[in-house]
Simulated scan of single mutants.
Amino acid sequence: MSEPVRQSATTIKLAERRVFSASFKPLYDEGMGLVEQTAEYLDGDGRAAAKGLSRIGATLYAAESMRLTTRLMQIASWLLLQRAANSGEMTREQVAAEKTKVRLDTASAQEGASGWEELPAAFKSLVDRSLSLQSLVRRMDDEIYGHGAEPVQTSPRPNPVSDQITLLHTAFGRT
């Protein structure tokens, strides 16, 4: 068994350096841009595309849209807190206390879910981009503030709606 690695007072935390410097702006812009792009898509092309989905696809689209917007709002909250610390509006301690309300663990149904293949490519791209950004932000958060949250479940979770639909099909003899 190896001994734990100890960080010295001179260890440079790259995530902390990025968040608390001018190099934070591109990350902030990326996150807020993704929020804006997603809102535009869901209110426009996504709404139209969802009308052409099967019942299972439409249900998955609605559920995944909620996960997507929740994930992005949590990321935006984290980014806004870091920007406040970066600009001196809040201390790091205040940010650390406030960020306990932010969850960086919103999972996705992903490819294994029934109906996933029906979802529009643009929508799936937004989901993938949001998951990548969430992963990056989570790693930075862990490095800056320490570990403490449960890891994001990356394997597809059972879809309770799909499970209920399957039970209904079984009960009524349809496949």
Score class of each variant (00 low, 15 high):
Arg6Gly: 09
Ser8Tyr: 06
Ser8Ala: 11
Thr10Arg: 13
Thr11Ser: 13
Leu14His: 06
Glu16Gly: 10
Arg17Phe: 09
Arg18Glu: 14
Val19Asp: 08
Ser21Tyr: 02
Ala22Val: 08
Ser23Gln: 14
Phe24Ala: 08
Lys25His: 13
Leu27Arg: 04
Leu27Ile: 07
Leu27Lys: 05
Met32Lys: 15
Leu34Ile: 02
Glu36Ala: 15
Glu36Arg: 14
Gln37Pro: 07
Thr38Gly: 01
Glu40His: 05
Asp43Leu: 15
Asp43Ala: 14
Asp45Ala: 15
Arg47Val: 11
Ala50Ser: 06
Ala50Gly: 04
Lys51Thr: 12
Gly52Trp: 04
Gly57Ser: 03
Ala58Met: 05
Tyr61Lys: 00
Ser65Leu: 02
Thr69Arg: 04
Thr70Met: 09
Arg71Asn: 00
Arg71His: 02
Leu72Met: 05
Leu72Pro: 02
Met73Glu: 07
Met73Ile: 06
Gln74Cys: 08
Ser77Arg: 03
Leu80His: 07
Leu81Asp: 04
Ser87Thr: 11
Ser87Val: 15
Gly88Tyr: 04
Thr91Cys: 05
Arg92Gly: 06
Gln94Gly: 06
Gln94Trp: 03
Glu98Tyr: 04
Thr100Leu: 15
Lys101Met: 10
Val102Thr: 04
Asp105Gln: 14
Thr106Ala: 11
Thr106Lys: 10
Gly112Phe: 00
Trp116Leu: 06
Pro120Asp: 00
Ala121Ser: 10
Leu133Met: 03
Glu143Thr: 07
Ile144Pro: 00
Ile144Asp: 01
Gly146Arg: 02
Gln153Cys: 12
Arg157Thr: 07
Ser162Gln: 06
Thr166Glu: 15
Leu168Tyr: 11
Gly173Leu: 12
Gly173Asn: 13
Arg174Thr: 15
Arg174Met: 13
Thr175Arg: 15
